[in-house]
Every structure is written in C-alpha cells, then in structure tokens.
Design a protein around this nucleic acid. Structure first.
Lengths: 344, 344
DNA sequence: CTGAAAGCGCTAACAC
DNA sequence: GTGTTAGCGCTTTCAG
C-alpha cells in the first residue's frame, strides 16, 4: 500500500531518476549538470523528475567517478584571529555561491614540518583547490602541492608559483612610519612578531623593511633597540610595549605591526598612566573594527575581500577559465584617528 | 630503468599495496584500518608496504563504499564574528586531532527558510555530523537532519532532541543586571539584538529574561523604553546606546548583551563626552579579548571550549561511543573591570 | 586469518 | 540526442 506521498526510505539514485523519466542514467547525468547534447524537452522532464524525487547526486560517487570534489580548503596558521576570520568569511562566501564546500584547517604557527606534511596528506585528493593564508612555504612544498594538481592561491606573502593576493606590506610600513615622522617623531618604536627570520618573504618582515626605509629616507638611523617582538596578538603587543616603555629613553611613537598588538600597547599604556597620544603615539595596521572604538590610527585593508579574490582565483583555475598567475595588491589607506599626535 | 627512488606518477591504490605485500585488497583494508582478524605479522608487513608506497586511501572511494565521510560541518550564522571564530577554532582542533575534516558553512542570520533548506541539501551525504552554532531551528528541521542519520550537536540555544552546549543565559542576564543593581543603579538600559521574537529559545531572549527577572526581584518595574535593539555587533551597540542616551531620562547603567555591542556603546559614549562609568556604567557578555583592553566589565565564557565539547559529542556519537543526549552548561563568571561603578 | 567478488552511485568514453 | 558499459578505489559480506 504505497502512498503516493511516501518519501523513499533511502535516497533516490540517478537510476531511480532515469527509470522515472524513461531515459538512461547517462542522460540524467548530462541533463542535470547542464551539459550539452540533451534535448530541451528531455532536460526539463528530467529536472522535474529529479526534483519530484528529491534527488541529489551523491557527492562521494561523483567525486570518485569524476575525480573532482567540488571542495576547496583554506589553510590558516591559527583559526581564531580576526584576520583569519575575515579571510575565511571571504572565501566561504565565494565557495558557497559557487556550490563548493570549504574545508578549514589550521596548520599552526610553529614552523615544524610535521604540521605542514600532515596538511599535505590531509589535502591529498580531498580537495580540488587550496587557499593558503599567511603561510611561509618553501618552493618544494609549493611544487608538491601543485604537483598534486591542486589549484592554489595564497593570501599574504607573495609566493612565486601561484597567484597571490595581499597588500603592499613594504608600503604599509612606509606609510605608517612616515605618518609618525610627519608628526615630528624621531624615536619610533616598532612592535612586531617574533618570527623566524625569513624576512624577505613574510608580512612582518616586509612591514619592517618599509619602516626602516622610511626612517632612512628621513635621515634617521634605525635603532635595533627600538624593535620589540612579541606574539602577534594583544598580549604580545602588551608585553612589547611594556619593554619599550621601560627603556631609559623610550620612543615617543610606536608602530605596531597589527591592530591587535596595538590594542595590547594601548592597554599597557593606560595601566602605566602613559597618555596616548600626548606621551606616546600609537599606530596599527588592519583597521580592525575595534580600532574605531578605541580611536586607533591605523592602515586600513580589506581582508575578507582578499579572501574572496583568492577563492575566485582558485575556482576559475578549476574551471579552466583563468589559468595565468596573478599577483593582486589591494589598496590600503591611512586612517587617522586619536592615538597619534605631534611629538611634544 | 626504474629508479628505486622514483615516486609513482599516479597515486598508489589499495591494489598496489595488496600486490606489493602479497595479500588481497580485503586484507589491506582490514589491516590499515586496525580491524581485527589480521595476523600481527601480516599487518605490520602491510603497514610497511603502505608507507613505502606512500599509500593513502582515496577518501571518495572509501566514503562511497563505507557510507561515511569522516567529515563534519559546522554551521554558523555569520563567519566573521569573534564568537564564531572561537567556536570554529574549538571544533577544528578536535576534528583535526581525530582525523576528521571540518566544513564551515554560514547560513545567514535572515530567518529565510531558503538558506536553511539549502544548508540541508548541502549537508546531505557530504558529512557525517554537524555542529549547529546559535541557530534557532524548528523541530521539523531537527528531525529532518537527524532523520538523515547525521550526528548533530548544538551550541547556544538548548534544542530538544540533540546534545547542546552553552551557558545559562538566563543566569547571565541575572548576574549582569544584579551587578548593576548592587552598584545602586535603578534605571538600567539593555542593548540587545533585534531578533525574531522566539524569545524562549534564543540566546538574546534568555539574557533578557534574566535581566527582567533580576529587576523584578529588586522590586523594579521593567521599562520597555529602556530596551534598545540593534544588530549584534559594534555598530548595533553604537546605535542602540545613542538612542538610549537621547532619552529624556536616560539610564545610568547599560547592559549590552554582547561585548561587541558594548564596544559600540563605549565608542558612542566617548564621542558624546559621556564618562564611563561616572555618567553611565556599561557591562557586556563574553569577555572578548578586547574587553580587557578597554576595561570592560563583562561576563566571561569560554566559547572555543564549547565548540570543542560539541565536536567531541558529535564524534563520539559517530563512534557509537556515546549515544545519549547531554545538555552541558559551561560556567560563567563576572569580571569586574573599569566600566561599571556606583550610581552617582 | 585470508581471499573472491559484489557492489557503493556516479561519470565518461564510445557506440548508435 | 541518447544509451551501453566500463570503471573510479574502496568496503564488506560470504566462503574457505
């Protein structure tokens, strides 16, 4: 006594649809994927049948047969940072619209190869493409990824053999430091990440380069003492700022390589009774939403847009639409707020 | 002239391993998955062979044959919020350790059924389990998810037929408001989310309930005028605070249902020249890292831990380890900082 | 303890 | 324009 409303106990397969529509599975497959060589009438009949049967192709079967998973991964150093969340949001929006799944994986900040190799194994045949976020990666590793015919794009550092999306970090350093210079500051502290010294290729190193360049252009000898490292987060900025202020001759301005580090600096300043900007100016990078709250002067960048661009690059590489590498640089701009002021 | 170091051009399959180890594919499959009924010697020989060949099972093939994907999804309303990022970090850590992939999907905050149904279709046979974050979902929707034999857990609202992880949001509202009451405040504003009025089941509604209850216990008639809604983010808090302060008789204390809304309130207060806490006290919820920076009094909760717990619940349900539903309530505690003070 | 064989549900030649 | 068929690489009875 099968009720006409009875929904199938088990999912409808392509064969069910084929049988119900009176065609072969091959035709169903073609019709539903929008492939050519299907009569319009046949196609719409199949579409109707499929939706009536609530048919949805089994992703695993389709992946196995076609060799594509319609899934891309985004690999971030750490998941729960503002920056990562922005990138991921951008990637996710694009994936979701394109009908792709997005796998998120953290690879850790420790340079240990273990994690990276794990990542490679984890990626193998699971995903069609990959968005690398702020990951310093060796050429060999890149080759091995590309060799497994993954479509890859990177956000952050400019890697050689893949499309990259980011900002001009040297320029960021110059703009920030020049802003401080223009305000009359000459002793400028820098708060950055205590990273492995592969400066050329990493974001913090590039910002430092810009900083140093701006200093030199102003005829100021960069003082290594004025560089304080800490973890790339609020606490790191807090501690680095503390160290800077404990100097005999502390800087009158501080350039934090990220807003979150600047927040830590502001927190410590308040605790120490140091007035910002009267006693010391502070500038950050990112334009984190909280920057407006605390009045932080900063360099704005649109991170989630970079994520979206990278995702689109990966998807179009998979389509075969767009094969050539691009290196896209998003605009940045100085946002003057209340934490920077003239040297007193 | 095959070099002994030549890596296979195409991936090694289970057949390659079987041939190289001189056993059948069935035995390889058993051995590598740790199943019983494999002689120890055979097993280790197979393991060696597999690693020598750099063999990794094809996830799609294994998924198709076994019907399990070793993937779970986490569905969040919006990706790029602090709260989501915390949850996702917790889930990701657990998944990564268990060898599961994690798909992240945003389902949007609009109550439109379209997105939810899309989500269901997107999940179908792609994932073994699902972590729902702060999603108000109907019983029918739950049933349809569970019916597709997904292991489901939820973070935030306490849903009936699945394990849930969260905090006691009514209590959060009570604690926050009582803190303000203890400070002598009687006109207490509330800044919350302009949500659909399914109060009972949603986080903001529960906090509001606690707030109201605390007021009533103190013999204070809740005044609807003192409730200001806005989007659940900095801007929403900014605008809601602004409206509150524009009243003829503005509150002397404000309870923001989330730290990010409180940040917006603080920003607007600064712009208006309103001193916090001398003119108005502000308390939030979450203990966002920036709360310490701006000295925000708040209610602490550990969000990423909730994510980790939910992920473990899903995984153990998949293992069959742990079948019964749990409703776990994480502790919260008041963190008194500088934005609340006695009524003047 | 091990092997043979039948699928899992779909895609992609290739034939008609 | 449509159908037939041979896999994709694994898991899982069922024999032995």
């Amino acid at each position: 006594m099968t009720d006409i409303n009875t929904r199938p106990a088990s999912r409808a397969t392509i064969e069910d649809v084929a049988a119900a529509a009176g065609v072969s599975v091959a035709t169903v497959s073609r019709a539903l994927r929008g492939l050519p060589n299907v009569a319009a009438a046949t196609r719409s009949r199949i579409e109707d049948t499929a939706s009536r049967l609530d048919y949805r192709p089994d992703p695993a079967a389709s992946r196995l047969a076609a060799g594509r998973s319609r899934t891309i991964a985004v690999a971030v150093p750490v998941v729960n940072t503002w920056y990562s969340a922005q990138v991921v949001a951008g990637v996710e929006a694009v994936c979701s619209e394109a009908g792709y799944d997005m796998i998120l994986m953290s690879v850790g900040i420790d340079a240990s190869h273990r994690r990276r190799l794990d990542a490679k194994a984890a990626l193998d045949r699971r995903v069609d493409g990959l968005v690398l976020v702020d990951l310093a990666i060796t050429d060999d590793e890149i080759d091995s990824l590309i060799g497994s015919k993954l479509a890859v794009a990177s956000i952050g550092p400019r890697l050689g053999r893949m499309s990259t999306f980011g900002i001009d970090n040297v320029r960021v350093g110059e703009v920030a430091t020049r802003h401080l210079l223009d305000l009359g500051h000459t002793r400028i502290g820098l708060i950055g990440e205590d990273t492995v010294p592969v400066f050329e290729f990493e974001v913090p190193g590039q910002r430092l380069t810009g900083h140093t360049r701006a200093l030199e252009q102003a005829g100021i000898e960069p003082d290594p003492e004025l560089i304080a490292f800490g973890e790339f987060a609020i606490d790191g900025g807090y501690e680095a700022f503390d160290r800077l202020m404990a100097m005999d001759d502390p800087p009158t301005a501080v350039f934090a390589l990220a807003d979150e580090m600047a927040f830590g600096a502001l927190q410590r300043a308040r605790e120490l009774g140091i007035d910002v900007p009267d006693d010391v100016s502070v500038i950050g990078v990112d334009d984190h939403p909280v920057a407006a709250v605390v009045g932080l002067t900063t360099i704005h960048q649109d991170v989630s847009e970079q994520g979206a661009h990278a995702a689109r690059a990966v998807l179009s590489a998979l389509d075969g639409t767009d094969t050539e590498l691009v290196h896209e640089t998003s605009p940045v701009r100085l946002i003057e707020r209340a934490t920077t002021g003239p040297r007193r």
